[in-house]
């Protein structure tokens, strides 16, 4: 029997839903819910995480990310301006930096600033400084590319019009180019903060005191007692979502606003 294309699409959709429901039902049937509840969602253990998970871990994750982001944004802007500079050596230096720090694993950079640099120079870096440097330097390489793309996405005619009115290079950048670039940059920049929030978990490498624990380290420490199960990690994971989901929504809102603004 021949089916119309629309009818066939409908049938295929029904079959897909049916498979999904059967799979979910099977998974629910074979799962030992008792154990899952105990290991992952133990309410007693969950309650034990509070208030520390918020007052220490969540707070520290936000502080580390914010510190890293401030440095990354400043460095990233400098690198982006170097990358579009007419001075060759500036461009080469920026390219070298960006390629290097995008190419090596963030983990290595954390080890470098946590152990190698202090050891080599015989200095002791404050934990916050270490975190700011490691997170900021890695992220600045990505942010530099985001900013450069944003600056270059502003049509050249905008800069020329500004210069033809007598504005200096700096004035044209500040009043005309950068405000337009920001609208283009905001969505990818928000995504960059989300990445940094998660990357801040690499701090577990450093020897932290309890008051310096961020979410991942906090969760790892809490599961070290056998009776805790994995519930603390679930709580820590949920706490990350408390930060990243609203940021994601914000990024999408920026995106739709940018789309509206750039209509022809």
């Amino acid at each position: 029997m021949a089916m119309s294309p629309r009818k066939r699409a409908q049938t295929s959709r029904i079959v897909q839903y049916a498979i999904l429901i059967v799979a979910a039902a099977a998974a629910a049937f074979v799962t030992d819910w008792q154990t899952v509840g105990e290991k992952f969602f133990n309410p007693t253990v969950a309650l034990q995480q509070f208030p520390g998970v918020v007052t220490t871990a969540l707070k520290n994750t936000i502080i580390y990310t914010a510190l890293g982001f401030v440095l990354a944004l400043a460095l990233g802007l400098l690198l982006a301006l170097m990358k579009i500079s007419s001075v060759g050596p500036y461009r080469w230096l920026a390219t070298l930096y960006i390629e290097f720090f995008r190419g090596v694993p963030a983990l290595l950079v954390f080890i470098a600033f946590g152990y190698a640099v202090p050891f080599a120079f015989g200095i002791r870096l404050d934990t916050y400084v270490t975190v700011m440097l490691s997170l900021g330097i890695v992220a600045s390489a990505y942010i530099a590319e985001t900013l450069r793309a944003g600056l270059q996405a502003v049509p050249k005619g905008q800069y020329e019009a500004a210069r033809s009115l007598g504005m200096s290079h700096t004035r044209a950048m500040i009043s005309i180019v950068i405000p337009q670039a920001i609208r283009i940059i905001l969505p990818p920049l928000t995504n960059e903060i989300i990445m940094m929030t998660k990357d801040s978990s690499l701090i577990y490498l450093l020897g932290l005191t309890a008051s310096q624990y961020e979410l991942a380290k906090f969760g790892r420490e809490a599961i070290s007692s056998p009776e805790a199960g994995l519930t603390p990690l679930v709580i820590a994971g949920a706490a990350y979502l408390v930060i990243t989901v609203p940021l994601g929504i914000l990024a999408r809102r920026f995106e739709s606003r940018t789309a509206k603004l750039s209509r022809p």
């Binding site: 049509p155 005619g157 020329e160 210069r163 033809s164 504005m167």
Partner: peptide
Amino acid sequence: LDEMRAHVGMVFQSFNLFPH
């Protein structure tokens, strides 16, 4: 240069108005 350009008006094919 900037002072000179302030005395010379320019109109472009693509207008180049500042959209913001």
